[in-house]
Computed example of a mutant assay.
Amino acid sequence: MLVLSGVLESVWAVALGRSEGFTRLGPSLTFLVACAASMAGLAYAMRTLPTGTSYAVWVGIGAALTVTWSMATGDEAGSALKVLLVLGIVGCVVGLKLLH
């Protein structure tokens, strides 16, 4: 549930950027639905996982996917260093999750 919730965090982050300040209906609705579902999944995960770990894993997944998506679509310049740093985030997320 926490992984899916982190994926949805990336969806709402991208949609928020594309909503142009909530002036575009499609991305604005995507943001609202994905944000609500992401928060609900995070809350559900926090029933059995510590808050700090849950939040760190959720944010890490969302951040890594958002940066990766932005580089893949050309919205953001990519570099070997960025890829290495995103892999560092992923490694830390995996490590935190394995501890619980």
Rank of each mutant, 00 (worst) to 15 (best):
G62P: 13
L99K: 11
D75S: 13
M1Y: 01
A80G: 08
S19L: 07
V14C: 05
W58I: 15
W12A: 01
L32P: 13
A15N: 00
T66Q: 06
A80N: 06
V94T: 09
L65Q: 03
D75F: 10
L42I: 09
S28Q: 03
E20L: 06
A34M: 02
Y55A: 10
E20I: 03
K82H: 02
L2K: 02
T66N: 08
A77C: 09
Y55H: 14
V94Y: 02
A36H: 06
A40H: 10
V59N: 13
Y55S: 12
G88Q: 04
S79P: 08
T68L: 08
M71A: 12
S54K: 13
S54Q: 12
S10I: 06
I89F: 05
Y55T: 14
S54W: 11
L98C: 03
V14D: 00
A64K: 11
L32F: 11
I89C: 03
L96N: 12
F22D: 04
V93N: 07
L8Y: 00
V7T: 04
W12G: 00
I89G: 08
A63D: 13
T53F: 15
C35V: 15
P50E: 13
V3L: 04
V3I: 12
V11Y: 01
E76D: 10
V3F: 04
T66I: 08
V33A: 03
G91N: 05
L65Y: 04
W12N: 00
L65M: 08
R24I: 13
G62M: 10
Y55I: 11
V59W: 12
G62T: 12
G62V: 09
G91C: 04
G95H: 05
A34H: 05
T48G: 06
A45I: 14
G21N: 10
R18K: 14
T73N: 05
W12Q: 02
A37M: 11
L98T: 06
G52E: 10
R47S: 13
F31V: 10
L49Y: 11
W58E: 15
A36G: 12
G78K: 07
P27M: 11
L49D: 05
W69D: 08
V33F: 02
A13E: 01
L25G: 05
M1A: 01
G26E: 09
G74S: 06
L81T: 10
L32M: 08
T48Q: 09
E9G: 07
